[in-house]
Computed example of a mutant assay.
Amino acid sequence: MTLYGADLERVEKELRAAEREWGLLGVRIEGLKAQREALRKLVEASVVPEVEVQDLTKADAMVKILQASEKPMTLGEIAEAMTAAGKKTNSNGASVYIDGLLKAGRVVRVQRGRYRAA
């Protein structure tokens, strides 16, 4: 093997190691982005004051949560707040109730996907 051949082999080995490290860093970055997004959602959800909804219907509970919120909420945020308050709900379930509340005039859509109490 020539002198350049040994150098080429060494550089290729270092390059493979650096590419593996780069791949691992990419995975770590994506994991941290996911954690950041989850924490942002928790921070936003914690802005809604705790409300008592156990004795209310889901529709009334949604209105009460929206009244307590300082900002318009998405269906996902509403569902998270409902679940945190003791009324297990997902965004699909919240969508069904929001439709009826919109028609009844108890909730308004302030922009696409964001709602507040009327």
Rank of each mutant, 00 (worst) to 15 (best):
Gly26Ser: 05
Ala84Trp: 02
Glu52Ser: 12
Lys88Ile: 07
Gln67Pro: 00
Lys71Glu: 08
Val53Ala: 03
Ala81Arg: 10
Leu3Lys: 05
Arg112Gly: 11
Ala61His: 15
Glu9His: 11
Val53Ile: 12
Glu44Asn: 13
Ser46Leu: 04
Arg16Thr: 10
Val108Pro: 02
Pro72Val: 07
Lys103Val: 14
Ala6Cys: 00
Leu32Ala: 11
Val107Arg: 00
Val107Pro: 02
Glu50Phe: 06
Gly26Glu: 03
Arg28Asn: 08
Arg109Met: 05
Met62Asn: 10
Ala6Ile: 07
Arg116Phe: 04
Val110Thr: 09
Met82Thr: 03
Asn92Cys: 15
Leu15Tyr: 03
Asp60Leu: 05
Leu3Trp: 07
Ala94Tyr: 07
Glu21Gln: 12
Lys71Gly: 04
Tyr115Asp: 13
Gly23Ala: 14
Ala18Gly: 03
Ala59Ser: 09
Glu77Val: 01
Asp60Thr: 08
Asp60Gln: 13
Leu102Thr: 07
Gly23Trp: 08
Gly31Cys: 09
Ala84Phe: 00
Lys87Leu: 00
Leu75Thr: 06
Tyr115Gln: 15
Ala117Ile: 03
Ala84Pro: 04
Glu37Tyr: 08
Val47Ile: 13
Met1Cys: 14
Arg116Ser: 05
Leu66Met: 12
Leu25Ala: 09
Leu102Ile: 08
Gly76Trp: 09
Asp60Ala: 05
Lys64Trp: 02
Val96Lys: 15
Gly105Trp: 09
Val27Tyr: 05
Ala6Gln: 12
Leu56Ile: 01
Val47Pro: 01
Ser91Trp: 07
Arg28Pro: 12
Glu37Asn: 13
Arg16Glu: 07
Ile29Trp: 14
Leu101Gly: 00
Arg116Val: 11
Glu44Asp: 15
Arg28Asp: 08
Leu25Asn: 04
Gln111Leu: 11
Leu24Arg: 15
Gly93Phe: 05
Ser95His: 06
Thr83Ile: 03
Leu32Val: 14
Lys41Phe: 06
Glu21Asn: 10
Arg16Tyr: 01
Ala17Ile: 06
Met82Ala: 13
Leu56Gly: 00
Lys58Phe: 05
Ser69His: 03
Gly26Val: 03
Ser95Ile: 04
Gln111Pro: 07
Gln54Thr: 14
Pro49Leu: 08
Gly76Lys: 09
Val51Pro: 02
Asp55His: 10
Ala17Phe: 00
Glu80Asn: 12
Pro49Trp: 01
Val110Leu: 12
Met73Val: 09
Ala85Cys: 01
Gly86Pro: 11
Leu56Asp: 00
Lys103Met: 06
Thr83Phe: 02
Ala61Trp: 08
Val63Lys: 00
Val96Ser: 06
Gly76Cys: 07
Thr57Glu: 03
Leu39Trp: 06
Met82Val: 04
Leu101Ser: 02
Leu75His: 13
Tyr115Ile: 12
Leu42Met: 09
Lys33His: 11
Arg112Ala: 15
Lys88Ala: 10
